[in-house]
């Protein structure tokens, strides 16, 4: 069951936003739609919601073909980037809205409504704000209320459009973990859109990487990071150093310990933490030196400069734990040798 998308395509004039998307999302998963701006992820989310309609293709929610159903019948909950709370209603009325607009037969009694709203407020830990208005709340509080409001109608699917995009960095970090825990508790199939790959990796159980309206790769965070299937995914997720064999790098790569027998391509992508760094005193053996480094908390990122045979300079990024860096006792300008332990090959 869950969500199924068959051949979804959407064009805006000449621009192709989505190109024959086929996607199956199992029930209960927390899925991230990840990609750069303009890749079609928000359009896809809105098509699933029913806020927009695909030019071709079909949407199935829990086995039912909802392609031509309006949003109000799809039983989805939607959370907007800018919260979209009803500014003239209190927090309580905002959350109660979905319950109050139900058809008369299905409407809860005032007592039931009060209980439901307060239990949701307790779930998001904001019961004390029930009589405030949205403009009296902070961004993080607003988004949690928006989430409570979406959950009030007990949707079968929860859709979030860049939910933390409008928040401060520290609030964002807190809410990411909070959303993940909430999902474990509730187990509602959820899809959220983001362009922040760290956020996708931290929160989601499945990531779908989109680019130019097509799905590049779908998998768990570790699958996406450790085994990128396309050049785009490798570059987009995490940091990558790119070496092309066509630039006469074969000898150099050989010297650094990379074997390319059985390599499936001519371009090597190397993650910074797969580069080991050693200090070398003699200039004869190496033409790489340490240009700069950045302190990133538990790890240090090294900026290494390398003179290419054609006279140009290229920058290589390596990462290592702070302790290791201290052991090496490197200073700027020191000559180093590299040892590459792993690479992904692409064409």
């Amino acid at each position: 069951m869950g969500i199924n998308l068959h051949n979804i395509s959407k064009q805006f004039g000449q621009f192709t936003a989505l190109d024959a998307i086929n996607l199956a999302i199992p029930e209960g998963e927390l899925v991230a739609l990840l990609g750069p701006s303009g890749c079609g992820k928000t359009t896809l989310l809105r098509i699933i919601a029913g806020l927009e309609h695909a030019d071709q293709g079909e949407v199935f929610l829990k086995g039912e073909n909802v392609t031509h159903q309006s949003i109000k019948n799809r039983q989805i909950g939607f959370v907007f980037q800018h919260y979209a709370l009803f500014r003239h209603m209190t927090v309580f009325d905002n959350i109660a809205f979905g319950l109050r607009v139900k058809p008369k037969k299905l409407r809860p009694t005032p007592a039931q409504l009060r209980e439901k709203v307060h239990s949701l407020l307790q779930l998001v830990q904001l019961d004390w704000l029930h009589d405030r208005f949205p403009d009296q709340l902070s961004g993080g509080q607003r988004q949690r209320i928006a989430l409570a409001r979406a959950l009030a109608v007990e949707p079968s699917v929860l859709l979030l459009d860049e939910p933390f995009g409008a928040l401060d960095a520290s609030v964002r970090k807190d809410l990411r973990l909070w959303l993940r825990h909430l999902h474990h508790e509730l187990n509602v199939t959820s899809i959220f859109v983001t362009h922040d790959q760290e956020e996708a990796m931290e929160v989601a159980s499945q990531i779908v990487v989109l680019n130019h309206g097509k799905i590049e790769q779908k998998g768990t965070p570790s699958e996406i990071y450790d085994h990128p299937q396309t050049d785009f995914v490798s570059r987009f997720i995490g940091q990558t150093n790119v070496f092309s064999l066509q630039d006469n790098e074969s000898n150099w790569l050989d010297a650094t310990g990379i074997t390319f027998e059985g390599a499936k391509g001519i371009v090597a992508h190397v993650r910074p933490h797969h580069i080991m760094v050693e200090k070398r005193d003699d200039a004869a053996h190496t033409d790489i030196f340490l240009k700069d480094w950045q302190h990133l908390g538990a790890t240090i990122r090294l900026e290494l400069n390398r003179q290419l045979p054609n006279g140009k300079a290229s920058t290589i990024y390596a990462e290592m734990p702070s302790e290791k860096f201290r052991e090496l006792a490197l200073t700027k300008g020191d000559r180093v040798a590299l040892h590459i332990t792993h690479a992904h090959w692409f064409n």
């Binding site: 919601a49 806020l51 309006s70 949003i71 109000k72 989805i76 909950g77 939607f78 907007f80 800018h82 979209a84 709370l85 009803f86 500014r87 003239h88 809205f97 979905g98 607009v101 139900k102 928006a146 409001r149 979406a150 009030a152 109608v153």
Partner: peptide, 25 residues
Amino acid sequence: HEEEEAALSLGASGWQTFFKVTLPN
């Protein structure tokens, strides 16, 4: 129109959205 989209997503009809969300705003 985000508030109106939100109202629709919560199950409100067009008229309900108009009277409860658009008009007060």
